[in-house]
Nucleic acid binder design. Sequence first.
DNA 1: AAAACAGTGCCAAAATTTGTCACCTTTTGT
DNA 2: ACAAAAGGTGACAAATTTTGGCACTGTTTT
Lengths: 244, 244
Amino acid sequence: MSSRIRQDAIVRSLRRNGTTTINALADEVGTSRRTILRDLSALRGEGYVIHSDVGRGGGLQLDPRSMQTTAKLSVPEVFALLISVAAMRAAGNLPFSELADAGLAKIEKSLPPEKIKNLRAFLECLHIGQLSPLQDLSNMGQMDRDLLPTFEAAFLQRVFLRFAYRDGKGRETTREVEPQAMLILPPLWYLVGWDPAREDFRHFRMDRISAPEVVPDKSFRRRHVPFEDDVCPYSELQVGVGIN
Amino acid sequence: MSSRIRQDAIVRSLRRNGTTTINALADEVGTSRRTILRDLSALRGEGYVIHSDVGRGGGLQLDPRSMQTTAKLSVPEVFALLISVAAMRAAGNLPFSELADAGLAKIEKSLPPEKIKNLRAFLECLHIGQLSPLQDLSNMGQMDRDLLPTFEAAFLQRVFLRFAYRDGKGRETTREVEPQAMLILPPLWYLVGWDPAREDFRHFRMDRISAPEVVPDKSFRRRHVPFEDDVCPYSELQVGVGIN
DNA sequence: AAAACAGTGCCAAAATTTGTCACCTTTTGT
DNA sequence: ACAAAAGGTGACAAATTTTGGCACTGTTTT
């Protein structure tokens, strides 16, 4: 964990708990007492006013006047928010989605103009269907790190995607398809690929896909082109969030 | 020299010189070519758009547009985002919710500290259950403007809420309850109220509630107190979002 | 007097950053 | 056609920074 993230966690904890101790912070953040002390020193150096009472019953307190935060969202995070709200809306017109949309529209607008078109195009690859009963998704969490970047690379480069697929009967096969879209049928996600051998679309449950990789030389014949300008919309930017 | 300072120096140089090369930067900053390349990559990751021309006579240029835009989110919008993602997560561990959470945690952190506690308290009034099949929610969209502010006022002032309710058989009645919580069982939302006459909790589907209003003089007897300090957590602030 | 706090200095281990080198591709000038 | 000048990547070892552990000091409460 980077010191920056840890210090953020410390500030958050101080804000939340009002009063706390070094040992409690060390436990919470998962680091040593010594490191917490160093971080406190660094935070004080950055202008955070942290009162401390020594002695039994003592502890730390963050002076609420010392604020000055400008958090930064990475674009993957903004992206995740966009997807979440899009899925929300599809999942049955939940209340406040109008407000959430408006908020995201503003965040989106604050991205550099040339990125917005691409981001929208990428979102168009998401087709969100109706709700279905809850199912087990224990390994779905792995997608964040592995699958998405590779999928995106394949969309971007307009080349084939190769991956291992375990079908409903547990058989493992290797597939090569032209990725066309991502389909969300909550709580399951599917990759929609064009299989040129079968001349047809195939759906792959994302939790059954592993080891995805792009096949550099095989480019799409049937192409749903997500990006203009061959620019990847997410993974280059950060969005700052602060109080005005 | 810390990487942060060095990257600042690179940006300054790019701004000043209009066009430059990696080797020139390395000389100027006093580091290696490789490190400059890594810093450029990091800067691009933070939103700086740096054009590069390969080949003899090429070089680097900082896109002047990639500097500072700021949109503004109202706090209701932030609040709606928080709810959306909370509901998302409850609705079956969808992918990317980890990222979305991280993003929202940052946004939340950027709120003034005294608001955060209240916002959290308000969120604790939300109890989110499991998915159920999709139902008709055509008039759910009306909630954004009417219901939420009134509910919140009632929570805040700890007074009764009066509203018109149309039950499952279409009968219209007027109800007066102590609002205790909002329950989300996607895609339906419920108000959980304590009915003092019946000495019991009652659930009200939000899409069947209309014309809500607070009853100023009747205060809670059974109270689930969402806010400290009698401060309404949402509706006073604006959050700025921008590229850094 | 004991317990529960904050805080400091030191050192070795762990992790991260940096530099070097080899190598690739593209563009332009001769 | 070729060489030079530009951007860019990957691997690996060296340099540097961060971290954890320890021993220690000082204060306040019980």
